[in-house]
């Protein structure tokens, strides 16, 4: 077949792909390996050791920051998933209401909006409202950013679903809300799960918006990592980063199972 000839792997294609992937992964692999280095010096390999992990678990400030980050990420991802899913439903299924252009604009703009602007504007709002800055202000800020990502993920899935299923349910006597809950919702659950996980990891990652919106005494993990990194490389940071990567790896594995589940239902949507 001719199309097979065109899909053939030429040396150029394979090289481009391999180099690209190596570029994406090597630095992370190196980081993980060095987190187990017993030596304080980066160039000297002092044998395998868990020394830097012990150091992290005895670092009170880092542990507090990590706990704060996990709570912010869990709460903001949950609110963002609810709001983002509602927005996706309205955009794919709703009638053309007034202000729809504004609505979709507000949902896409934060995807590319420089973080310094989002962070600054939210901080000024919180100051004007005289809200005490800390856990809730960071959570609200992260929700605002991440719900847009959830919307995009869920929207692409909703767009791919055969709408005649909903119509059939309603022809059989379901009201629209029930048709949605019993037919549509089970079909989009995997993408909702993927959206939650994306929101969770994005929140766990953010330095800039959190720096603007947090208050004294409630630094998140990225803020602490960032201030340490500015002072230079510390092996303890390697260990923390490796643990964050491990956590995210677990999250991705679950997400890919979710999307495999959705593919098994005759769909090829990928998370994002």
């Amino acid at each position: 077949m001719a199309s097979r000839r065109i899909n053939r792997l030429t040396p150029f294609n394979v090289t481009a792909l391999a180099l690209g992937l190596a570029f994406l992964y090597l630095p992370i692999v190196i980081l993980v390996i060095y987190s187990f280095n017993a030596s304080r010096l980066v160039t000297v390999w002092g044998g395998w050791s868990l020394r830097w992990y012990y150091e992290f678990f005895n670092d009170r400030a880092m542990m507090d920051a990590a706990w704060m980050s996990l709570r912010v990420a869990a709460v903001s991802a949950t609110i963002a998933t609810i709001l983002g899913t509602l927005a996706a439903v309205a955009l794919t299924r709703g009638e053309r209401f007034k202000g729809r252009m504004l609505f979709s604009g507000m949902l896409y703009a934060p995807l590319v909006m420089p973080e310094v602007i989002s962070g600054l504007s939210l901080l000024l709002l919180f100051v004007a409202l005289d809200a005490g800055r800390g856990f809730w202000t960071v959570t609200i800020a992260h929700t605002t950013l991440t719900m847009c990502f959830v919307t995009v993920v869920v929207q692409s899935r909703l767009g791919a679903i055969d709408r005649s299923l909903e119509e059939a349910a309603m022809d059989l006597g379901c009201d629209p809300v029930r048709a949605f809950l019993s037919v549509t919702l089970p079909l989009i659950i995997p993408s909702i799960a993927a959206g939650w996980m994306l929101a969770f990891t994005l929140s766990l990652d953010d330095v800039v918006i959190a720096s603007f919106t947090t208050g004294p005494g409630s630094a998140t993990l990225p803020i602490r990592i960032y201030s340490e990194v500015r002072l230079g490389v510390k092996p303890e940071i390697n260990a923390i980063c490796t643990m964050v990567i491990a956590l995210i790896a677990v999250v991705i594995t679950v997400a890919s199972f979710a999307s495999k589940l959705s593919r098994a239902q005759g769909e090829n949507a990928v998370p994002l």
Binding site: P27, Y34, N238, C241, V244
Partner: peptide, 18 residues
């Protein structure tokens, strides 16, 4: 290609400092 996008952005910059 998507997986590194999920890994922390700050960590990836830090990896390069290493």
């Amino acid at each position: 290609v998507i997986v590194p996008f999920w890994t922390s952005f700050l960590i990836r910059i830090y990896a390069w400092i290493n």
